[in-house]
């Protein structure tokens, strides 16, 4: 009789893990492209916040979630373009520009939210993406709940990773991107346009980060809250390292972090767990530290990461 509650716990835990990992997967897979092209974007958190707000705002006003996603995508393109101008064309210090992006993202999204929405003092929720039960498969015991009753943003992560791995390893563009991040000078001599390739790397990363942010306001929850991203952009940076700069690596590493979020939320809800809730909230961040130090040495970063060219 003890087995059933344990299985149920595991089932809801695993299902939540994928949901919680979703925003991180988008941001981290995008950052894989950015870093593979040799650019380090630590401004993910800010770009995710802007995407979260843009998506929420447009979806709330129009009642159309797809338009919301489109708005997030455009916000990501704009953020990425500005980031690339500063880091690739102007060749500014990438960490400094990233830190500025985080401040602007935090300030601008909170400023616009307070200006447009919070005067009313009400929580303005929208109709988020609903779970799409896959016919047949969703009825499988255990697995159905874990894998086949999610919303479209969650399913989208698998499509994204497959596509990302294909583009990165099986296309000419992917090869150029990786060579630009490893040895830009050599890439340059073979006729690859280094700055243009890096622009694309940055834009892919920013667009996916913005979509990851929007998944928080349009799918995971149904509203915008100031600072809603709560460090997921930074966790995505750790995930890229932990996932050895590969899309699938980033995917599995994100799931690991998703499980920390899922676990701490479930433990918080259990009255018999006597750990103070602040310690549980700190768990994903503590886990990031532990994971980062236990496996950092395994893989090597792109050789030209963070170094402007020429």
């Amino acid at each position: 009789m003890e087995l059933m509650p344990a299985l149920l716990f595991l089932q809801s835990m695993l299902a939540a893990t994928w949901r919680m990992a979703t925003p991180i997967i988008y941001a981290a897979v995008g950052e894989v492209f950015t870093e593979r092209s040799g650019v380090l974007n630590i401004g993910l958190e800010g770009i995710m916040l802007i995407g979260a707000f843009a998506g929420y705002s447009v979806a709330y006003e129009t009642g159309n979630l797809v338009l919301g996603l489109l708005a997030a995508l455009v916000s990501g393109l704009l953020s990425g373009l500005i980031f690339a101008i500063f880091t690739v064309s102007v060749k500014a210090n990438q960490i400094v520009v990233g830190a500025a992006f985080n401040m602007i993202g935090m300030g601008l999204s909170a400023f616009l939210y307070r200006t447009i929405y919070s005067q009313s003092g009400r929580v303005l929720s929208l109709q988020p993406f609903r779970p799409l039960d896959i016919p047949g498969l969703s009825d499988i015991p255990f697995l159905g709940e874990v894998l086949f009753r999610h919303n479209i943003m969650v399913y989208g992560t698998v499509v994204l990773v497959v596509l990302a791995a294909f583009v990165l390893y099986r296309t000419a563009f992917g090869l150029s991107l990786r060579s630009v991040g490893e040895h830009p000078k050599a890439a340059d001599t073979t006729g690859i346009n280094v700055p243009a390739t890096r622009y694309v790397g940055v834009l892919i990363g920013a667009v996916l980060a913005a979509l990851g942010g929007a998944s928080l306001t349009l799918a995971y929850s149904d509203q915008f809250v100031e600072g809603i991203v709560t460090g997921r952009g930074f966790i995505a940076l750790a995930v890229v390292v932990f996932g050895a700069w590969s899309p699938w690596g980033a995917f599995w590493a994100s799931l690991l972090f998703g499980s920390f979020y899922a676990l701490q939320l479930r433990l918080q809800a259990m009255p018999e767990v006597l750990i103070p809730y602040q310690f549980l909230q700190a768990l994903p961040y503590l886990a990031t530290l532990v994971v980062l130090i236990s496996l950092t040495r395994r893989a090597r970063a792109p050789r030209a990461l963070g170094v402007p060219y020429p």
Partner: peptide
């Protein structure tokens, strides 16, 4: 005017410093 605007302005200051330097 929501005071959080200051955060954005600070970020803009950093970007302007970077641009001026360049």
């Amino acid at each position: 005017v929501p005071s959080v605007l200051v955060f954005a302005i600070q970020g803009l200051v950093i970007l302007s410093v970077v641009a001026t330097g360049a």
